[in-house]
Amino acid sequence: MSGAALRMEDVAFSYGDMAMSFDLAVEPSSIVAVMGPSGSGKSTLLNLVAGFETPASGRIMIDGADVARRAPAERPVSMIFQENNLFAHLDVEKNVGLGRSPALRLDAPDRAEIASALARTGLAGKEHRLPAELSGGERQRVALSRVLVRDRPILLLDEPFASLGPALRREMLELVRDLHGERGMTILMVTHHPDDAAALADHVAFIEQGRVSALAPSSVMFSRDAPAAFSAYIGA
């Protein structure tokens, strides 16, 4: 797998009385931190790319094809949410297996793939645990394992590590960076932490009032040349 290019062109969507319009171009295999105040539209942007929201107009191009009208499962996209990434009544192996077959019909190669994904994320030996028997960090590792077996060129992270402690969050970010090094998928990551963005992302997209008001390399965004509104937001 390698990353795909993502382009949002005049993607219009209204949420209540807030009208949003997104324009964004992301290079293949880059990692973009999506930052901005609460309610600015960060999660909506991710939901539009994933297909949970349908835009009123505009195009969402992934590797040159417009996916804006496709069902979520038909898009070359995986997403990890802040919570509810797992089915509580299914064990770890089955939760990951759903990434291979939505009917959970798994053959031997599928199972081998699942086992290696679990081993890669440090969950070997926990195949038959239920989500309730796992820690918060482990649950998100299961979700990451599923991303590995689904093997889609774009990964959306909607603050999946926000509820973890600082050390654990850093550990998870390192895992994401390693997986990115191996697979090269394009990553959009919503985060409130400038440190996370600086550590992981090569670009930062700043969202204000339903628009992408700035998109620049992290080195620029975390320097004195950053847009004033962004500096004010991160308190730099």
């Binding site: 949970f52 499962a73 996209v77 995986s78 509810n84 089915f87």
Partner: peptide, 8 residues
Amino acid sequence: KLCASLGI
């Protein structure tokens, strides 16, 4: 959401 994204 999870069902939609996994096509279940």
